[in-house]
Amino acid sequence: MDSQYIDHAMVLAGILFCLGLVGVMVRRNLLFMMISIEVMLNAAGLAFIAAGSAWGQPEGQIMFLAVITLGAAEVAVGLGLTLLLFRHHNSVNVDKLNQLRG
């Protein structure tokens, strides 16, 4: 019936995920990397919602709730780490954090 919407919603999720991946890989600013990760989480949530809609079950939205919670906690801690990075190196360039090499 309306399966095209579910399919296209999934396609959109895939596109958003890959765009977010591009953003994480390209940017050097830790802040932008975290924003891109948020985009990826968003995409995953969209996939869950679409699946829940396809099956007509509330589990999709419950999972989306879990995803958002996770994203929020991760953002909180991540931004704290970003602040720490900024204080130490006076820059948010993530390439400065390369001492775990070898």
């Binding site: 019936m1 309306d2 399966s3 919407y5 579910i6 399919d7 999934m10 396609v11 895939g14 596109i15 995920f17 890959c18 765009l19 991946l21 591009v22 890989m25 829940g52 809609s53 396809a54 099956w55 007509g56 079950q57 509330p58 999709g60 939205q61």
Partner: peptide, 28 residues
């Protein structure tokens, strides 16, 4: 390039195989 490859793989995965049942948008 990497993201494009990943996307294409995801799309292939999505559109290969048979859907289990006809599905549509159900509001919850």
């Amino acid at each position: 390039v990497l993201a494009a490859i990943l996307l294409s793989l995801l799309l292939i995965g999505m559109y290969s195989g048979q859907p289990l049942q006809p599905y549509g948008v159900h509001g919850v």
